[in-house]
């Protein structure tokens, strides 16, 4: 509780937000706030300025193109993700969103906030990587697009750098997806998670085992092939109170295989 002193502003356009972010090195965008405010409560982060993105309409909304590509505004909440008609085109999105934390967090937390905070236990970074999502980033001068597997750089660190805003996420068409996790209690924090996609090449991205999701392209779709591929990745996961590195390495194999199995069942 009890944040450090901070300045606050709520722009109504992306341009205004980018101007405000560029104006102060200590400015940070505030999306749903379900991670950032907690970090600020612990005074582990103390931005000088919070640029609240909640009033910017152009960061909201979900568009489903005729070719099946979904374009999801970064300020789309988890609740919108799991309730919107458009996201039914890629069912895994709503299924995973429904297991993030709880109703309150899902009502405020956003897809953009989830990926930009890139807490290694988050659900969406591995999912975005597995689905081959593209992240659209606006800066003061230009807009650029980064593949999800290149977006995540480190814990709490992404390609959306200082002064930039993730504006939308593009997700190609597909249905053969899977997600598996071992969590602390039902819908709790992930100990290890994995997302899989079998639309074209087999892709499985594993979370909680490194600073960024680990993308693996297994040679086959059977459990042994997936587990071999995960073993081949030489994971060196962190140890903490919930799991040793060794246990996480083992779970990574199990959940990767399960995610692929789920995806296969939908092929």
């Amino acid at each position: 509780m009890l944040l450090r002193e901070v300045e606050y502003v709520r722009p109504s356009s992306l341009d205004e937000a980018l101007r405000l972010l560029a104006a102060d090195d200590g400015a940070r965008p505030l999306a749903g706030g379900q991670t950032l405010l907690n970090v600020m409560k612990a005074r582990a982060a103390a931005p000088d300025v919070l640029v609240d993105l909640n009033a910017i309409e152009e960061l909201k909304g979900i568009d489903l193109a005729p070719n099946g590509t979904l374009t999801i505004g970064a300020m789309t909440t988890y609740t919108e993700l799991l309730e919107a008609a458009e996201t039914k085109a890629r069912p895994i999105l709503g299924e995973v969103a429904a297991t993030i934390a709880d109703v309150q967090v899902r009502n405020r937390g956003t897809i953009g906030g989830n990926v930009c905070s890139n807490d290694p236990t988050n659900h969406l970074p591995p999912l975005m990587v597995a689905l081959g999502a593209e992240m659209v980033i606006a800066g003061a001068d230009a807009e650029r697009t980064v593949k999800a597997e290149d977006f995540f750089l480190g814990v709490y660190l992404t390609a959306a750098g200082p002064g930039e805003v993730l504006t939308k996420i593009r997700i190609p068409a597909g249905r053969s997806d899977g997600f598996a996790a071992v969590t602390i209690g039902a819908d709790g924090t992930c100990i290890v998670n994995a997302a899989a996609s079998l639309n074209g090449e087999a892709r499985v991205a594993i979370g909680c085992v490194a600073a960024v999701p680990v993308l693996i392209r297994p040679g086959g779709r059977d459990a042994d092939a997936v587990r071999d591929a995960v073993r081949g990745a030489d994971l060196d996961p962190p140890s903490d109170v919930h799991a040793s590195g060794e246990y996480r390495r083992h779970l990574a194999e199990v959940v990767a295989a399960r995610a692929i199995e789920q995806a296969s069942a939908r092929s």
Binding site: Y8, R10, G33, L37, D52, V103, Q104, V105, N107, R108
Partner: peptide
């Protein structure tokens, strides 16, 4: 109209 945790919002919001 939406359920939220009021410790996860700033009053100014």
């Amino acid at each position: 109209g939406q359920l939220v945790k009021s410790c996860m919002l700033l009053a100014v919001q």
